[in-house]
């Protein structure tokens, strides 16, 4: 502002005074606002565990949203294939090594125990039972939960933080279909396949051990291994990993999709995805096993 030099001091003092007054008004308002906020907080945050239930509620509404959208267009087939590649092919190395080494170790550890009862010949069937019924499905799912949960949580989280998801939404590109539906479906489809591969490799590892230590014939191994298994068991126990896959997909996508804030929250979302989906896998496994025993009877019926 162009003013005469004589006036400038007056002007400056006037400005200073006005600005002091403004500041005072602002301070008062700030205090008022803070008091209001405190009162509001005191009113709202008194119920214990409220946050947990709110979060659980949001997760279930996210699941509901998934089921309402999954039937509808657009069907993102190409993106689904990309994601299946990510879940399957690119995780193959990890699950393969885990399966193979668990098979060998399991055989080595059990051999001594079985030998004590003179039941060494049961080794293959014990291996098959434990691998196909429990270790294969659960271990594969947990390993994949670690790899994919963190990946999806972090990827969607950072897309959310950098507003890429909003950009898709605004351009009418249905990000939920593109990002969430494809990932969850990829997990649902690929988890059982990965489990079968892990089972196969674990049994192969077990056989390798048996062959190395007492030269077991492969035919004998296969015959005794599958003797005690029923078809229903194999199906139920493999297909339950679809549910685990659904859990991993939906939990990771939910946490990633709802990140608010910055990079710290992205990291937290990735970490929580792994923790929450692993816990839910183990809990749901208990429920599924109980249910399958109720429906199909337990393994003693096989004999």
């Amino acid at each position: 502002m162009e003013t005469l030099p004589a006036d400038s001091l007056t002007q400056r003092l006037r400005d200073a005074r006005r600005s002091r007054q403004s500041e005072k008004i602002l301070q008062d308002k700030e205090t008022e606002r803070k008091v209001e906020e405190r009162q509001e907080e005191a009113r709202t945050s008194s119920v214990p565990g409220e946050e947990f239930f709110a979060e659980a509620g949001n997760l279930f509404s996210f699941v509901g949203r998934f089921f309402s959208r999954v039937w509808r267009r657009p069907y993102e087939v190409r993106e689904l294939l990309t994601q299946m590649d990510e879940v399957g092919t690119k995780s193959l190395m990890l699950t393969g090594v885990v399966g193979f080494s668990i098979g060998i170790v399991l055989a080595m550890q059990s051999r001594g125990t079985l030998a004590r009862f003179g039941a060494e010949s049961f080794l293959p069937s014990m291996l098959a039972l434990s691998v196909i019924k429990e270790i294969g499905p659960v271990l594969t799912s947990l390993v994949l939960a670690g790899r994919l949960g963190a990946g999806m949580g972090a990827e969607l989280g950072s897309m959310k933080v950098t507003e890429q998801i909003d950009a898709l939404e605004v351009a009418a590109l249905k990000p939920f279909h593109y990002l969430v539906v494809t990932r969850v479906l990829a997990c649902v489809i690929m988890f059982p396949i990965m489990t079968m591969l892990t089972d196969f490799l674990a049994l192969a590892g077990g056989y390798l051990e048996a062959w190395l230590s007492d030269g077991m014939n492969v035919r004998v191994f296969i015959a005794t291994a599958f003797d005690s298994l029923r078809f229903a068991d194999v199906i139920v126990d493999t297909m339950k990993t679809s549910i685990f896959g659904f859990i991993v997909g939906i939990v990771s996508c939910y946490l990633g999709y709802n990140v608010r804030g910055g990079t710290r929250e992205v990291g937290r979302a990735a970490m929580q995805s792994v923790v929450v989906s692993s816990l839910l896998i183990l809990i749901s496994d208990v429920v599924i096993v109980r249910l399958s025993i109720m429906l199909f009877g337990d393994i003693s019926d096989a004999a």
């Binding site: 507003e163 890429q164 909003d166 950009a167 605004v170 351009a171 009418a172």
Partner: peptide, 13 residues
């Protein structure tokens, strides 16, 4: 939305 555009802070590429 096909008639609206939104330029996000970081470009959101």
């Amino acid at each position: 939305r096909t008639r609206l555009g939104y330029l996000f802070q970081g470009g959101a590429l």
